[in-house]
Design a protein around this nucleic acid. Structure first.
Length: 644
DNA sequence: GTGGCGTGGCTTTTT
DNA sequence: GCCACGCCAC
């Protein structure tokens, strides 16, 4: 038998070797979905049904994309040149870089991250003189991204005369679009929408890509939003073949536009689809699986599947009731202290980020190393963004957002008034802020400071222009005054910032091989900002959302209380089924040991609230659960009133 | 430019 | 009840 398929079970093999057509793979948690996806690609190549440049593989996260590339490489005997594998955003971006002209973008268009986007909107609110209280920039941001995710431009949205809210939002959207277009900025949602429009409106181009990508492999399809679906639909055309892997029970991103209905839509839009179910789980014990199955059975809106395993029952699912969130954390820390396995095999999962602090403190107290996922990414850090902004300005004097960012960072006596003047002139004369700064009439003091800045950039630019990128970073660090600036901060803070800048210089080396090193570097910074490396021997703390796709020997699922999990707003918005899926994701992360924890009271919004156990606990059969009491340890449990 | 004050929000988040 | 952020006054 072909070695590619001999390690597969029957269902996996069916999916991998299915004759050409649209294949939907319903892949339960831990059923080997990445394996099927990568083996399918290898199968197509090795049986000569496809050549590598005919394949496009899309995922949602960079992590998944990297994993996929790696696994394809190890499966294949020769490298798969010409195969495109990446995130939706990454591939859309690639198309726009190649076809910037028909996409109506400047060659050096820049990617806007979430923070930059908000900055632009704030400024727009000021120029348009909109009341920030009533129409907050954050809400506008949400509105705009929501529209783009749906594939809608401002002009596509019909509005009633009387609807002031919508009218206002639309005019902001419109103004924002104009600003972005004028300054060559592209936000994340725009990458997708723009590349969709690019293909839609250029039939020759579309046809060439339809010809090329005859096989489209899609991961986590349940998380696609409207524009991603439209994009795929367009690209598949009449000849392409879809191979789509999904799990409707793990759809947890509805809140940011994911459309679980896309699964049904796909089956309607493409007549000849074939569904393969992967229901054998290779991850968890029978007890853990049975719990997950029982829980998710309470959802009405699902395709329905039943995961099974050959694994034995294992130990029961443990349930711990704490008196307070502090006690909950102490219990978890104590259990981890007693754990004899590897620490990175332990995860503490919770619904909201705010819950992490209590666990941090408990772990700290016991001297247990931990790592929290989430929070600021490397390229989102202040010092990194500051330095990158200098690099941007060195390349392009007309980059207004870079200009604004660094003109007075570090402080060099150019105040808000001065900047406002510059902005005013720029708007009036329709030029960049850099150009405006050269001619703006100012009082001597402000004028001198501003000219000194312009001069600094010009001289720096001369000095640096033939240096490799990483040396540019070093030079900018010193000449800009950022180094001195950060050194003034608290010692630890300063050290961290300087370390990050070193790291940035280091990262820059990897891009020196490109023809446009800085552009490649900046794109990477915006689009592929990976979280730091998973450090060894640390307990992992993360939200349930962050845990998707991961697995651990020992899992603590915490804060299982009504109003927290399921979260209050979800109950009100009746998106309870999504909360349940989130719980399902949490349970199925565990391989061998699972603890469900809840507290009878919790300090929230400045009050101590009394909590009832989550309905999800009650949905797991009693016979699978064993309640645990904290063994009486010094200082624990004995002084506090114990309920029950 | 800094510090003090007031206000809003407070679920999840990748790119 | 706390924090972050924006605004204003000095």
């Amino acid at each position: 038998m072909n070695p590619l398929i001999e390690t597969l079970n029957k269902a996996q093999r069916e999916a991998v070797t299915a004759p050409l057509g649209h294949i939907l793979v319903l892949a339960g948690a831990g059923s080997g979905k990445t394996k099927v996806l990568t083996h399918r690609i290898a199968w197509l190549l090795e049986t000569g049904q496809a050549r590598s440049h005919n394949i496009l593989a899309v995922t949602f996260t960079n992590k998944a994309a990297n994993e996929m590339r790696y696994r394809i490489d190890t499966l294949l005997t020769k490298p798969a040149g010409g195969l495109w594998a990446g995130t939706f955003h990454g591939i859309a971006h690639r198309l726009l870089r190649i076809h910037w002209q028909p996409a109506n973008l400047p060659k050096a268009f820049q990617i806007l991250d979430t923070v930059d986007q908000l900055r632009i909107l704030r400024r727009l609110f000021k120029t348009l003189d909109i009341d920030e209280k009533q129409w907050s920039p954050k809400k506008a941001q949400k509105f705009i991204n929501g529209c783009k995710d749906e594939g809608l431009r401002a002009k596509d949205i019909a509005v009633d005369e009387g609807d002031t809210w919508l009218t206002n939002m639309l005019s902001i959207y419109q103004a924002y679009e104009e600003t972005c277009q004028r300054t060559g900025m592209v936000d994340f949602a725009e990458l997708l929408l723009r590349s969709y429009e690019l293909l839609r409106d250029n039939s020759a181009l579309l046809e060439s890509y339809q010809d090329r990508f005859q096989h489209l492999q899609v991961d986590e399809f349940q998380d696609t939003n409207t524009i991603q679906y439209k994009w795929l639909h367009l690209l598949v055309g009449s000849r392409g073949k879809l191979f789509v892997v999904f799990d409707d029970d793990q759809s947890i991103y509805h809140f940011r536009g994911a459309k679980i209905e896309n699964i049904q839509k796909l089956q309607e839009d493409f007549a000849d689809t074939r569904l393969v179910r992967l229901e054998q789980n290779y991850r968890s014990t029978d007890t853990i699986l049975a719990s997950a199955n029982a829980l998710i059975a309470n959802n009405k809106d699902r395709l329905g599947k039943n995961l099974w395993t050959q694994d034995k029952a294992g130990e029961p699912v443990f349930l711990y009731t704490a008196y307070s969130e502090t006690e909950e954390a102490r219990f978890v820390a104590e259990k981890i202290q007693a754990w004899r396995g590897k620490r990175q095999e332990v995860a503490i999962l919770y619904r909201t980020t705010a819950q992490s602090r209590e666990f941090e403190e408990a772990l700290l107290e016991k001297g247990i190393p931990y790592r929290i996922y989430g929070g600021l990414r490397f390229y989102e850090r202040l010092e990194v963004k500051d330095l990158l902004a200098y690099l941007r300005l060195l390349r392009h004097r007309d980059d207004d957002s870079a200009f604004e960012r660094v003109v007075n960072t570090p402080k060099r006596g150019i105040g808000e008034r001065t900047i406002e003047m510059v902005r005013g002139v720029a708007r009036q004369q329709g030029c960049s802020m850099w150009q405006a700064a050269l001619r703006v009439p100012l009082k001597p003091r402000a004028r001198n400071s501003l000219l000194a800045f312009l001069d600094l950039i010009e001289r720096l630019s001369q000095r640096v222009k033939d240096l490799p990128l990483h040396e540019q970073v070093e030079q900018v660090k010193i000449a800009s005054g950022l180094l001195e600036h950060y050194k003034k901060e608290a010692k630890e803070e300063a050290e961290r910032r300087l370390e990050n800048i070193e790291e940035l210089a280091n990262a820059a080396r990897n891009f020196e091989k490109y023809s446009e090193p800085l552009t490649a570097f900046l794109d990477h910074a915006a689009l592929e900002s990976v979280q730091g490396n998973p450090s060894d021997d640390c307990v992992q703390l993360m939200t349930l959302h962050a845990a998707k796709g991961l697995e651990f020997e020992l899992v603590f699922l915490c804060g299982l209380e009504e109003d927290l999990f399921p979260h209050k707003t979800s109950i009100e918005e009746s998106s309870l089924e999504e909360e349940r899926r989130l719980c399902y994701v949490g349970i199925t992360r565990a391989r061998k040991h699972l603890y469900l924890c809840h507290s009878e009271s919790r300090y929230r919004y400045g009050r101590r609230d009394y909590c009832t156990p989550s309905r999800f606990i009650g949905e797991i059969p009693d016979k699978l659960i064993q309640e645990v009491r904290l063994r009486t340890a010094p200082g624990i449990g004995s002084t506090k009133k114990r309920a029950r």
